[in-house]
């Protein structure tokens, strides 16, 4: 019992936990402290004249939450809704939640400082770079760690489709 407790503490002190999600073949990590909930795909009500990457709003237990397509925000192909599609509910501030559509949620990983590199790109003008806070290495795979507040409030740069 003691041991488990200790190990748990150790994990929090030494690293951050990330939820790993997939968009196509790429893996992205979202800091777990911002994640309020993960829900299955729901009926999305379109909002006219919104930013193109906002798919609309959903009703989550009586709360109305705007839903953003990460794919459209990043300038990728539009979402194809499958059985694996999930909406991740993010809460940056207590009063305002926002949903992010991803292809699939894979796992939760703990990354410590050593396994995180600064985000770099061969092409410095890569529009995606502004949304990343770093790149994590886990089991020989690379996880792009999202700077979630930049993703949500950040203006569209050159990534408009």
């Amino acid at each position: 019992m003691e041991d488990i407790h200790g190990a748990h503490n150790f994990g929090i002190a030494e690293g951050k936990q990330y939820i790993v999600v997939c968009l196509g073949t790429e893996q992205y990590g979202i800091d777990i402290k911002y994640v309020d909930n993960i829900v299955r795909n729901q009926r999305i009500t379109r909002v006219p004249k919104a930013q193109h990457y906002f798919k609309g709003v959903i009703n989550l237990r009586g709360e109305i939450i705007p839903v953003m397509s990460l794919r459209l925000k990043f300038g990728l192909e539009p979402d194809e809704f499958t059985n694996a599609t999930r909406i991740i509910i993010i809460k940056l501030e207590p009063q305002s939640a926002i949903g992010i559509i991803v292809d699939e949620v894979k796992e939760v990983v703990t990354l410590n400082g050593n396994s995180i590199d600064k985000a770099s790109s061969s092409d410095p003008s890569d529009p995606l770079i502004q949304y990343l806070s770093g790149v994590g290495k886990h089991n020989d795979g690379l996880i792009s760690l999202l700077n979630i507040s930049a993703v949500i409030v950040g203006r569209e740069g050159k990534d408009t489709v």
Partner: peptide, 19 residues
């Protein structure tokens, strides 16, 4: 009447939403 939040940048034509 419920607010649709500040992130979504809808025009003034939408005053909110309801369930």
């Amino acid at each position: 009447i419920k607010s649709i939040g500040s992130y979504i940048n809808c025009s003034k034509m939408i005053g909110g939403a309801t369930i």
